[in-house]
Amino acid sequence: MNVGLGHYLVVSALLFALGLFGVIARRNLLVIYMSLELMLNAANLALVAFSRFTNNLDGQILVFFVITVAAAEVSVGLALIVALYRKRRSAHVEDLTAMKL
């Protein structure tokens, strides 16, 4: 059976679901961030597959921008985590209860 667009989309959907599971089930901020990266990568895979199978390079340009924005997001997010760790000595979501009623 020939590998087509559908196969790539299934792989991308599975990766996205894995990332979502990680975001909800894990409680370490860094691992949650890594799961977010996994979800971004799944979206990238779907975009590249669409771009390949519709003969349109615009999808790959979008992936290029997603990678750039993800790099900016990671740098700001990790700086926030480090600043938080300096204040709270913890990188655990359960210890961040400042907004709890």
Binding site: L9, V10, A13, F16, A17, F21, V23, I24, A25
Partner: peptide, 21 residues
């Protein structure tokens, strides 16, 4: 509890994707 919550939401979004496909 968290594993169950994660499995439910991940399974739900996977179901949406695959049903669309």
């Amino acid at each position: 509890f968290e594993v169950v919550a994660g499995l439910i939401s991940a399974g739900a979004i996977l179901f949406i994707f695959l049903a669309t496909l």
